[in-house]
């Protein structure tokens, strides 16, 4: 009986030892990786890789918990991912902690410090520069390794008259050093649009490229034309006889003067549309010219007209105010 008891006790001690040996802060490596103790090496590798993709802190830069979870996974794979170590572990010769080593720090911990500047990329900002000069001016400058910085941009303001903006053209601006610069005004440029002239800004540092010249365009208003999107709006004054009888009239357009047909019975406020006589659009098309008609009375209503009108209205009354 006593012998048997001793055996039982010894067995229990053995089991406890094994459990103690296996336990570490990370738990059972097979459990951590989610595989069976009898899983083939290929399965263990597959499970590990899946977890690495989910948990690797450098693949999830903002996730603060990722590092802890990943450490458990890495420790587990360190043991059971290696043939020799796995055998030893299964036999109980080593524990799940493996060797004592100071935990290596992940790259992301360095990525936000000055020491990592030679790896940082500014490629995320190129298109953001269109949204804001602030972005293209400020961002990316601190990131270079001290040596090769892109030069800062220079800002200009250029006033352009309506027709030059509509049709395109050349205009000169004077740079701060007195030099003159010929600027090509693109057809259809809008008020407030910024033109970017590459390489005409401040020089860079080291072998960094020269910055750009950013020219903010201000379009002066025109007496006769008004821009509405890609259309040009204008007003046309017509006589009552032109309105009643219809007529062909010459009107100004941005490309010169054109003939326009006033339909018989035209009313004030009616808009005639001249297709393709507007401004060049951003996406390639051309807008229209919109001509708003305004009937103007003769300066003097003579007796003849008054008499005729009195007679006419007896027989031809109409009410534009009725719904």
């Amino acid at each position: 009986m006593r012998q048997w008891l001793i055996c039982v006790q010894f067995d229990i001690l053995c089991v406890q030892d094994k459990t103690k040996g296996r336990k570490n802060l990370a738990g059972d490596p097979y459990e951590v990786l989610g595989v069976a103790k009898t899983a083939p090496a290929a399965d263990i590798k597959k499970a590990y890789r899946k977890l690495v993709k989910q948990l690797h802190p450098d693949l999830h830069p903002g996730d603060s918990k990722a590092a802890d979870r990943f450490k458990d996974v890495a420790s587990a794979y360190d043991i059971v991912g290696d043939e020799a170590k796995r055998t030893k572990f299964d036999k109980g010769e080593i524990d799940a902690a493996g060797q004592e080593r100071p935990e290596p720090r992940f790259y992301r911990e360095y990525a936000n410090q000055g020491g990592a500047r030679h790896y940082q990329s500014n490629a995320g900002f190129e298109d953001l520069g269109d949204a804001s000069d602030l972005f293209s001016d400020l961002f990316g400058h601190a990131s270079a390794a001290g040596a090769n910085l892109r030069g800062r941009n220079v800002h200009y303001r250029l006033e352009v008259d309506f027709l030059t903006a509509a049709l395109g053209g050349q205009q000169r601006i004077t740079l701060p050093d007195g030099k003159q610069l010929g600027v090509t005004i693109p057809q259809g440029v809008t008020d407030g649009q910024t033109l970017r002239l590459k390489g005409l800004g401040h020089p860079g540092r080291g072998s960094g490229p020269v910055g750009d010249a950013l020219i903010e365009i201000h379009v002066r208003p025109h007496a006769a034309f008004e821009r509405q999107g890609d259309d040009v709006a204008s007003e046309l004054l017509i006589t009552i006889d032109e309105a009643i009888l219809g007529a062909k009239v010459e009107v100004p357009a941005i490309s010169g003067r054109v003939m326009v047909t006033i339909p018989k019975g035209a009313s004030s406020g009616q808009t005639l549309r001249l297709k393709g006589k507007g401004l060049k659009g951003k996406r390639g098309g051309v807008g229209d010219q919109l001509i708003r008609l305004r009937i103007v009375m003769p300066k003097v209503i003579d007796d003849e007209l008054e008499t005729f009108m009195n007679g006419w209205r007896e027989r031809h009354a109409y009410n534009p105010r009725a719904e």
Partner: peptide
């Protein structure tokens, strides 16, 4: 470990470096 090939790694590094660049700015 993950066996990404020579074409994939620079892609990942580029994205990673851009992300860190953006985060820092």
């Amino acid at each position: 470990d993950l066996e990404f090939d020579e074409d994939t790694v620079p892609l990942l590094l580029s994205l990673l470096d851009q992300i860190h660049g953006l985060r820092n700015e």
